[in-house]
């Protein structure tokens, strides 16, 4: 989440404003990374380089991209000082790209294994994002962040996935032609051309691409049925399609836990399952009536 706040709003932790907490939390994560020899890149929020984002915007959580092979080290380090895992990579999002940890003092940290829209091997993508990284002071401590070109791409891809945000105006619209060309070249290297096109209004140039419907869904919205149709089209191969079907009808217990503020009972999971079936049936019925 990236709420804009004019003052230092406090969140559910109460004792420290969100913006201050997020800055300090980035520094805490970086210190853990330094100690453990763990490669991470800080993304979004205070990690964004000046001029790439609307001033005054604050993130409510910490986003880091970890070198995939270093994930076990980072998890151990986070949990050693009290972070608790709340969502898994399988349930965190459509892209299975991130999982969340919660700390009673430092709030949420989103650990990303890859960035939605990037289609090359995650370990290789991390190498590309790390190339020419920049050390940015967050809470007066150096934190590695992607360079300006990579940050522009990251912000545009995030915007595309979020149905469009003002980030695009700063990260893309305010860039000159040479800077935009650099972003396009980077997107090509990362296999992120379709996602970039979705973010900058050029998606129709990729109509025949398997992920076209998925990105159109993110940009334009639609029903859950539309989303699944798009995900089905984007899933390549029998394995991916089987995985998708299995996931489709499984209740996301991590999200249910967050909704309830406690682990769900078996009955609550069943009730949610019934609700999903009813919702799916309702959408089918609505389509039948429309046609």
């Amino acid at each position: 989440m990236d709420p804009t706040s004019e003052e230092l709003a406090e969140d559910e932790l109460g004792h420290i404003p969100v913006a201050a907490r997020v800055h300090l939390s980035h520094a805490v994560v970086q210190q853990l990374a330094d100690r453990g020899g763990i490669d991470v890149l800080h993304l979004k929020g205070p990690a964004v380089l000046p001029g790439l984002r609307e001033p005054g915007r604050h993130s409510s959580d910490v986003d880091v991209l970890v070198r995939p092979s270093h994930l076990p080290l980072l998890v151990t380090a986070l949990e050693s000082i009290g972070w608790e895992q709340r969502t898994t990579f399988a349930t965190g999002s459509v892209f299975a790209h991130a999982a969340n940890w919660w700390h009673d003092d430092w709030g949420w940290v989103d650990v990303h294994l890859h960035w939605p829209g990037v289609t090359i091997e995650p370990e290789l993508a991390f190498e590309v994002f790390s190339r020419d990284l920049v050390q940015r002071d967050i809470a007066h401590r150096p934190c590695p962040v992607p360079n300006a070109t990579a940050q522009r791409l990251i912000l545009v891809l995030h915007s595309a996935r979020s149905g469009g945000t003002t980030d695009v105006e700063h990260a893309w619209g305010a860039a000159d032609t040479a800077e935009q060309d650099d972003v396009r070249a980077l997107a090509a290297e990362l296999g992120a051309e379709v996602a970039l096109a979705a973010g900058i209004g050029e998606l129709e140039q990729h109509r025949g691409h398997p992920t076209y419907l998925l990105w159109r869904h993110f940009v334009e919205g639609g029903s859950r049925m539309d989303e699944w149709r798009a995900r089905w089209a984007a899933a390549r191969g029998a394995r991916a399609k089987t995985h998708l079907l299995t996931a489709a009808m499984r209740v996301n217990q991590d999200h249910l836990r967050m909704e309830l503020g406690r682990p769900p009972t078996r009955e609550e999971v069943r009730a949610k399952q019934r609700e999903r079936w009813r919702k799916a049936a309702g959408e089918v019925e609505a389509r039948v009536r429309r046609s």
Partner: peptide, 28 residues
Amino acid sequence: DVAWVSQDDLDGGDVPVAYMTRVPGGPP
């Protein structure tokens, strides 16, 4: 081993305020 932010870093208003912690295990 201290990380800190002040209102200057946060565009947070005119009242002097700073938040700090010893990283990685200290309290805010």
